[in-house]
Nucleic acid binder design. Structure first.
Lengths: 157, 157
DNA sequence: TCTGAAACATGACATAA
DNA sequence: TTATGTCATGTTTCAGA
């Protein structure tokens, strides 16, 4: 899919303000509303725009503890992996699960909980018990220096 | 800030569909539009809702490589940290920068780039050169098993 | 690009818990 | 008193010309 200057501007603006009205969006990119909306629809249907989300403040929700959990598996079989993946996908506190290389670990999870007690309970009751999990190492997040959802989209301007 | 049943429903729906109309939102939580909109505004002004974002598809944008970069600093002085943080905050490819404990590293960066060449260039030209960076270790992301922006907004807390 | 119908946002106000 | 529902008004969306 080819993106021109307008498409890139649209994507950059929507990554910043997902609730902007089509009229204002059209104004800001210097196009009239109709073609602007057509482009937005095309970007959505083309799969470039996956969806629109409200972002919440973790602290305001009482979720003050974020941790990275590095997990290694005993065997590298498809069954082990799919069991593990299905299990973590069902845990609301797990925001991210990445299959990674370059470390002792196989997976990195990112989790949020309200405090250390909740963390311990999550780890012991929901994670270490998953079949195949052999090693677990936790890093606590002291501060989120950068936390963006916006991917870099070319020149757009 | 106290959240009742309606507030939690609103947050959960907005975390899934950030562009839902107020009328449909009101329908889905079983309230009429006015009080529903008042609650949304209160949640926004109370800082619970940080903003609304369109989420894009990294692959569709040609950003096929995601990596975690673990970084250790030579000295743990405030100057080192603020220099580093200001530098990474200005790099569009850096989606996340976490100050962490529990590892050899001090920071974990999450970056997206189009390929290995772009990765190498990012690392050598923009990251290893920052004052104070003494150790760098890269983990490549093979697959994103779970990737959510939604925090758990549960019943009891 | 323009236009008009339908859907929507939003505030005033009356009302019920 | 606090939160809700109803209604009226202006705005936005969006398809067809």
């Amino acid at each position: 899919m080819e993106l021109d200057k307008y498409d890139r501007q649209i994507l950059n603006i929507l990554q910043t303000d997902g609730r902007i009205s089509n009229q204002e969006l059209a104004d800001r990119i210097g196009l009239s509303p109709s073609p602007c909306l057509r482009r937005v629809r095309a970007l959505e249907e083309g799969g470039l725009v996956v969806g629109y989300r409200a972002l919440l403040d973790a602290k305001a929700l009482g979720l003050t503890l974020m941790a990275l959990i590095h997990i290694s598996m005993d065997q590298h079989t498809p069954e082990r992996f799919s069991t593990f993946e299905a299990a973590v996908a069902g845990i609301p506190e797990v925001l991210e699960c990445l299959l990674i290389t370059g470390q002792a670990a196989d997976y990195q999870l990112k989790v949020v909980v309200k405090d250390l007690d909740a963390y311990q309970e999550l780890l012991l009751k929901r994670i270490t018990g998953i079949a195949g999990v052999s090693g677990v190492h936790t890093s606590f997040v002291l501060r989120r220096v950068v936390d963006k959802t916006a991917f870099p989209v070319g020149e757009g301007r």
